[in-house]
Simulated assay, not measured.
Amino acid sequence: MRALNISEPWGLDALTIVEVEDPKPGPGEVLVRMRAVSLNYRDLLMVGGMYGRGPATGGPITPFSDGCGVVEAVGDGVTRLVVGDRVATMFFQGWISGPPTLEKAQTALGHPIPGAGRELAVFNQEGLSKVPEFLTDHEVATLPCAGLTAWRALFEDADLQPGDTVVLQGTGGVSVFGLQFAHAAGLRTLITSSSDEKLARAKALGADHLVNYRETPEWAKPVREATGGRGCDFIMEVGGGGTIEQSMRAIRIAGHIAMIGVVAGAGSGFNPASLIGNAAKLQGVFVGSRDMFEAMCRAIDLHRIRPVVDKVFPWTQARTAFEAMRAGEHFGKIVLAF
């Protein structure tokens, strides 16, 4: 079989396809033929040699945490799945339920566990989950990281009620999932983007308020205006240092900011006194457990929510897909098909 590999000196030029032996499942393990994987910002960092707590060393790494595939064989003692089941890979192979721990966080696909970027892969049965039948393989591949991160931020960590106002930053995978989930739950949504075209697409998905942050860099003002001066109840913060100051100005007293990404760079930071002054909650979010994933899938099934797949490339064109991600060309998710 073939697999994607990345190692020193890192970078897109170092991304290669290698031939390796077909894996075989051991006790408690499942052999999956991959059908699709989706790209996350984390994968771009990994290919660039940055992941986890600092620069990567050595290698090689098989990238990608998010995949959809079909079970081809099972090892002794497997009870969760049978041959022919269509499954998604869990981002954290060892986080089944309960709160996060260091041990659970050390079971992420891509690193330290070889990822889903290969034609055949063996996983522990506990690290896989069945998925809604109505979704395509490409759509399923978007769920394990982006979908689950948005779900956890909105419904596991925040205390939101129908009619509350949530702000989604940008139109990448997590934010678009957040828009779809929030709309289905009866939440009022405001989404930001630098592109009027992308804002129009967000409007079609149910966004109530639209802000072009290039035209309105002080986007906290329209958030305040949309909420009668009160501020929003929740912000999906994906920019990091480059956007946190505006988030602090937009959030209501005792509101919730879910810190998910740092795609806007370091920025100028913010004064911690702002957090104290409005008693807001700032919480880091890194994906979620298998239990959370399965709860999300039940909601997706009920509301017939279709993940937004913007671009699909053959998996052998992973470099082209990463270049599209780096350029910010996508609305929603980018997927590689096997």
Results as ranks from 00 to 15, higher is better:
Leu148Pro: 00
Gln106Asp: 13
Gly147His: 07
Gly98Thr: 05
Ser129Arg: 01
Gln106Phe: 04
Cys68Arg: 09
Lys104His: 09
Gly67Ile: 14
Leu168Cys: 12
Gly117Met: 02
Ser65Pro: 05
Ser97Val: 04
Ala141Arg: 02
Gly48Val: 13
Asn40Phe: 12
Ala121Glu: 05
Met90His: 13
Phe91Glu: 12
Val71Lys: 05
Pro132His: 03
Val70Cys: 05
Asn124Ile: 00
Ser129Ile: 13
Leu148Trp: 00
Val83Gln: 08
Thr57Val: 14
Thr79Trp: 00
Phe91Val: 14
Ser129Met: 08
Thr62Ala: 08
Ala36Phe: 04
Glu72Val: 07
Val70His: 06
Val122Tyr: 00
Gly52Glu: 12
Thr62Val: 15
Gly58Ser: 06
Ala105Gly: 14
Glu72Ile: 06
Ile96Asp: 11
Val30Met: 07
Ser129Phe: 05
Asp159Trp: 02
Gly163Gln: 06
Ala105Asn: 10
Leu39Thr: 07
Ala116Ile: 04
Val30Pro: 03
Gly163Ile: 06
Phe134Gly: 13
Gln93Ser: 15
Ala150Asn: 05
Phe123Ser: 10
Ser38Gln: 10
Arg42His: 15
Asn40Gln: 11
Gly59His: 09
Phe91Arg: 05
Arg86Trp: 01
Gln93Thr: 12
Val30Ser: 07
Gly115Tyr: 04
Asn124Lys: 11
Cys68Met: 14
Pro144Thr: 14
Ala153Phe: 01
Ala56Trp: 00
Ile113Asn: 00
Gly58His: 03
Gly115Thr: 07
Ala121Leu: 03
Pro99Met: 11
Tyr41Asn: 13
Gly49Pro: 06
Arg42Asp: 08
